[in-house]
Simulated scan of single mutants.
Amino acid sequence: MQVAGKVLVVTGAGSGIGRAVALEAARRGAKVAAVDLNPDTLAETTAGKATISTHPLNVTDRDAVEALPGQVAERWGAVDGFVHCAGIIQPFIRLKDLDYATIDRVFAVNWSGTLYLTKAFLPVLLDRPEGHIVNVSSMGGFLPVPGQTIYGASKAAVKLLTEGLHAECAGTNVHVTVVFPGGVATNITTNSGVHMPAVDGAKASKITTPERAAQDILNGMEANAYRVLIGNDAKLMDRMYRLHPRRAAALIAGKMQDLLNR
């Protein structure tokens, strides 16, 4: 689906990939309904942008999410698609040390939020001449990452929900795309309330920028892609995991040991 002239909802638009997607979509000629939990950072995204509207919202609030399609249609006259970027990670600790409150929070944001948004907008999009659903999973949604096991499980659920929806929407006017970012330079740790030891400069220089991620996501939307891999790390590990899943898992586990032992 071409972005120009369409109305897109973008979640997580207060920062990171979501903000970059909202701005890039507007640059490409879309009208954007920017959604985020934080009204202050959301206002920074939309400041001075006549084609971006502001919608502070918690994606775990089902009633609020179900009201969103009507609010966006009231503002822009229609809804043609959404890019769901909102998500959080867990603390970098092993499952045995993770409390249930944290587990429930991660699944509420990553899984329930995705489900609510998809269920709320799908009937609306099926009535449009063309629609598009883009859900952001993670490299951790297909590759196990010790210390992010619950996060990975929630993103694996997003992966299979989106791929299943793609099959269900075959033959309709709705396209469905799942996105797998690798390392992207965002403030997801801060937004998640998680501390992460600093990454050295050499590694940080190889991390994908949010702007590049946004370009890849919207390019994928315009190509009606089945899946989009963001960053060389995600592309490499996707290939490796398909060929040697146990070896790929062991490689990531080895890289996570120092972090988990700090």
Rank of each mutant, 00 (worst) to 15 (best):
P91L: 07
I52P: 12
D80M: 13
A156C: 10
T186Q: 09
L57N: 01
K6V: 15
G201Y: 10
T114V: 05
N219V: 02
R247Q: 14
N191E: 15
H166S: 03
K159M: 06
A34K: 00
L160V: 14
A86H: 06
D238C: 08
D104N: 13
I217L: 03
R105L: 09
D63K: 14
V109F: 01
I217F: 02
L161W: 13
R227T: 03
V178Q: 01
E74V: 06
H166W: 15
V178G: 02
A43K: 09
A153S: 06
V106I: 13
V106R: 11
G14Y: 00
V184Y: 11
T208Q: 03
N173W: 13
G5H: 05
I133F: 06
G113Y: 00
G81W: 06
P69E: 09
V176H: 00
A248Y: 00
E222Y: 07
K155W: 11
N232Y: 09
N191M: 05
I230N: 00
H195F: 12
L95W: 05
V106M: 14
N38C: 10
T149G: 09
D200T: 12
D200M: 02
S53G: 15
T190A: 13
G18C: 08
H175F: 07
V32L: 07
V194I: 14
G12Y: 05
I150E: 04
D200F: 03
E168Q: 04
R262C: 04
M221R: 06
G29F: 08
C169H: 02
L8N: 01
V72F: 11
L68E: 02
G182W: 05
S154I: 11
G16S: 01
P245A: 10
L115G: 03
T51C: 08
D127L: 07
M240R: 11
G254Q: 13
Q71L: 05
N219D: 13
T46K: 06
I207M: 10
T51F: 09
M139R: 08
Y226P: 00
A22H: 03
V83E: 09
T60I: 06
L218H: 10
G220D: 04
V59P: 00
L125K: 03
N58I: 11
T209G: 05
